[in-house]
Design a protein around this nucleic acid. Structure first.
Length: 826
DNA sequence: AGCACGCCGACT
DNA sequence: GTCGGCGTGCTC
């Protein structure tokens, strides 16, 4: 007789620590760390949890529930991965449950639903029931089982539970909680030839027999033979293909099955189509520069050092990645390839598939639940077979994919801010997390960018990473020429038409004359169209958030970016009753509308969030630009990422100032990066492209450095500033947001927390201050910023911060206040 | 996170 | 009265 077992269960919820459940005797041989279990939490809800530990110590709690069932035969998450999850939770100051929630695809996290049915003992005799109760019963006679939502639908009432509860008490209804495994492998039917007929002679006799009476069956069999080709004894033909090719129905197949001619086999199939590789990675010819870079990378890998590949746009970083990936494939190891979300729709996927075919699997937020779960499962089940996923490609959440044999991690466009998750916990940076992951799993790591993040470049100087440079474009293509249009000067001389300077117009004309294309870039921060009253200056604001509403053409309404509130355009100003309401600011749409006047013959399209919302809209725009059906493409950020076109003569940056003047310690760096990324779209193979930057401040350092393509000058100027003002990479930042319904309480709570932090951290604590937007969805916000010197122990500082937050949260006065820590905020 | 419980204001 | 709208506390 063994002792009772208990299990520490990790739940995908924002709750501290683990919950302890009891292991029933019947499951004691099945439980193991890393397996999923079904447990009940609270009064009825069932959840999927993951076993973290099994022990024999009864916990000190009032009630202890049993594990209901074990879902996996093999652990879904390995010990090593769990260690990685723990690191993420610890470093980014969140709960392990937050990490589980982010890491597991939703199809692997089941949740129960309440189902209502008749009580088996209920005899149908009507007791005193009201109209709504009768409605429910009526519906149940037809359906046997209903969810609470369905009941809400038929009774036309939102709060349905008291109603159902009454019926349960009367002995009419019962409820059950149902969980269904949501991930199901896709199954397809295939057919093979029975062993008996592998013999040619016997097959011949069969043909003769069928030709006399079963003509349809003969046709199917002949189709089978044709499709099977040389592999008649081993071939498995898909049912759908077989039926389509022989134009037969499934009854005919049944007939053949009954005669013992063909045998049905159901196999697990991929939800993804198959694309064979079209070329060998070895066939790529590297330039001398690329060859040197590759050797340098391999040398650093030998020392187990992460590599930062600083390669200008068009220098051929991808070819180097492909070579490195091929080497991993030869060793039977997997590559995790991370890139920014928007770049996922781009050419790089096609490039990798071109060389690696089915060995590439993409993990994408646009995929449905099942597809994501399939990628997850196949990554973990990897055994090195030919069509196994050797390359896992995805945005930041792909960092949690369970690679069975990881060998290499690639972080492309490593400077990109979208690697940092900002909205929900865990607020992790996938690039920084990749560095830790690589160390924990003993894999190689390469990060690439044309404009590395200041932090990353600094790490190469301090020796934490190796720096490998590719500072020339592939094939000796020239870097684009960068010109600046002085908006103030042109404005004085009245040369500006709409939002176009004479310089930009001139360069665009030249390009269009040469049959070259034009890309115009408008930063999203400038994309707001604001209404204002010309008489008193009034501007419509969001009732729930502390922001002005912005105009959206496609709905002809004004809308809030934070909470989604929208309303009609006011016809009169509510303060002064004036009807003189005008629009300020400009976006991609405005620019698009101005073009016909300036370039009547040009074909114009717009690429931004609105125009690419529909499925495949992005690909369509992309293709028509590539096929030169578009002369001028106006767009936001989107046009700056991963688009490589050959025929772009001019890139126009409509307004550089709203990027540069953004109040943030990274705005200088971001502006430079943005300008360089957009500029990279110009020119390429054939001739030197041109970039026109429009600015009211043409002698600003950012613009000067951009003109010279001088990353290092930008870096040097920034690193000095960062040191002086104690910003990263010299100090670590932790931003703490305090949020709540009541302004005064938030103010007080923030003050108290800052005071507590101050007691030990002193001047490292800044604030509390109101953030740029101090109210979102009717919640008031305040922020505290902590600047921790690199020399200081991060571990003890963080645990002190954790404790300070906890002690503030336990104060009853602040029970409605939420505290949100953000480590290394972007 | 979800959910029950409890209190309050608005209507069939 | 009953319904729905929150605020609050709790989950092994």
């Amino acid at each position: 007789m063994s002792n009772t077992l208990f299990a520490e269960i990790l739940l995908p919820l924002h709750l501290p620590g683990f919950f302890t459940y009891r292991v029933p005797e019947s499951l004691s041989s099945e439980v193991a760390p890393g397996k999923r279990v079904v447990i009940q939490l609270g009064k009825k809800k069932l959840y999927t949890g993951i076993i973290r530990k099994i022990h024999e110590n009864p916990p000190d709690v009032k009630q202890i529930k049993y594990i209901q069932s074990v879902l996996d035969d093999q652990p879904l998450v390995t010990e090593q991965q769990m260690g990685f999850w723990d690191w993420v939770a610890d470093y980014y100051l969140c709960e392990p449950g937050d990490v589980m929630q982010a890491a597991l695809p939703s199809a692997l996290k089941l949740k129960s639903e309440t189902k209502v049915a008749f009580h088996p003992g209920f005899d149908g005799e009507s007791i005193q029931l009201n109209e709504k109760e009768l409605q429910i019963m009526e519906a149940l006679f037809h359906q046997k089982e209903m969810t609470l939502d369905e009941i809400a639908g038929i009774t036309d009432q939102q709060k349905v539970w008291p109603l159902v509860k009454g019926l349960i008490e009367k002995g009419v209804l019962i409820t059950t909680e149902e969980v269904a495994e949501r991930y199901k492998p896709k199954l397809i039917n295939t057919w093979r030839l029975a062993n008996e007929y592998h013999d040619e002679e016997k097959l011949g006799i069969l043909f003769d027999k069928l030709s006399s009476r079963a003509f349809k069956q003969l046709e199917v069999l002949m189709t089978f033979v044709r499709l099977a080709g040389d592999e008649i004894s081993t071939a498995r033909i898909e049912q759908t293909l077989l039926l389509k090719e022989s134009k037969a129905g499934s009854t005919i197949l049944k007939g053949l099955e009954e005669k013992g001619v063909l045998i049905k086999e159901t196999i697990e199939a991929s939800r993804f189509g198959s694309t064979p590789a079209k070329a060998f990675a070895e066939s790529i010819e590297l330039s001398t520069e690329q060859q040197n870079a590759l050797s340098a990378i391999n040398e650093s890998f030998a020392e187990d050092k992460p590599v930062l590949l600083h390669g200008v746009t068009g220098s051929g970083k991808t070819e180097i990645y492909i070579r490195l990936i091929q080497k991993m494939i030869d060793k039977g190891k997997q590559t995790l390839f991370l890139l920014p979300e928007i770049a996922l729709t781009s050419q790089i996927i096609n490039r990798l598939k071109y060389y690696f075919g089915d060995k590439v699997m993409v993990y994408h937020s646009r995929f449905n639940e099942m597809e994501r779960a399939e990628v997850w499962q196949r990554a973990a089940a990897f055994s090195g077979a030919d069509n196994d996923p050797f390359i896992l490609l995805g945005a930041r959440s792909a960092i949690f994919l369970p690679l069975a044999k990881p060998g290499l991690i690639v972080v492309d466009e490593e400077h990109d801010p979208s690697f940092k998750q900002t909205d929900t916990a865990p607020r992790y940076n996938a690039r920084d997390t990749a560095v830790v992951l690589a160390k924990m799993f003993n894999t190689k790591l390469i990060m690439g960018s044309a404009t590395p993040a200041v932090e990353s470049y600094y790490n190469t100087l301090s020796g934490k990473y190796s720096l490998v440079e590719l500072l020339k474009r592939y094939g000796g293509a020239p870097m684009p020429e960068i010109l600046v249009a002085d908006l103030n000067k042109e404005r004085k001389q009245r040369l500006i038409k709409g939002h176009f300077s004479s310089l930009l117009i001139q360069k665009m004309e030249e390009a269009l004359e040469n049959k070259e294309q034009v890309i115009l870039f408008q930063n999203r921060r400038g994309f707001s169209l604001r209404l204002f009253c010309t008489q008193c200056g009034w501007t419509p604001e969001c009732p729930n958030c502390d922001v002005t509403l912005t105009y959206h053409e496609y709905i002809r309404k004004i809308k809030c970016h934070y909470c989604g509130h929208q309303q009609a355009i006011p016809s009169a100003c509510p303060t002064c009753k004036s009807h003189e309401i005008k629009m300020a600011g400009f976006g991609t749409e405005r620019i698009e509308n101005e073009i016909p006047d300036l370039f009547p013959k040009a074909r114009v399209s717009r690429m931004d969030l609105e125009t690419t919302r529909a499925k495949n809209a992005y690909a369509k725009l992309f293709n028509s630009f590539e096929n030169k059906e578009i002369d001028i493409l106006v767009g936001t950020q989107m046009v700056s990422k991963g688009l490589d076109f050959d025929n772009v003569g001019v890139v126009g940056i409509m307004n550089a100032d709203n990027m540069i003047n953004f109040p943030d310690f990274r705005s200088f760096e971001r502006s430079f990066t943005q300008i360089m990324q957009v500029s990279g779209r110009a020119g390429r193979k054939k001739r030197r492209g041109r970039v026109v930057i429009q600015s009211g401040n043409p002698y600003h350092d950012v613009i000067r450095f951009a003109i010279d393509h001088d990353y290092k000058a930008m870096f040097n100027s920034q690193i000095t500033e960062r040191r002086q003002f104690h910003y990263p990479p010299y100090n670590r930042l932790i931003k703490i947001t305090i949020r709540g319904r009541d302004r005064q309480t938030v103010h007080k709570a923030a003050g108290q927390l800052a005071f507590a932090l101050h007691s030990k951290l002193g001047k490292q604590v800044l604030g509390p201050e109101y953030p740029l937007v101090s109210r979102i969805k009717n919640q008031f916000l305040k922020q505290i910023l902590i600047k921790i010197p690199k020399s200081q122990s991060l571990k003890s500082t963080k645990s002190f911060i954790r404790e300070s937050i906890k002690s503030m949260e336990t104060d009853r006065e602040f029970r409605q206040v939420r505290v949100i820590p953000d480590v290394d905020p972007s």
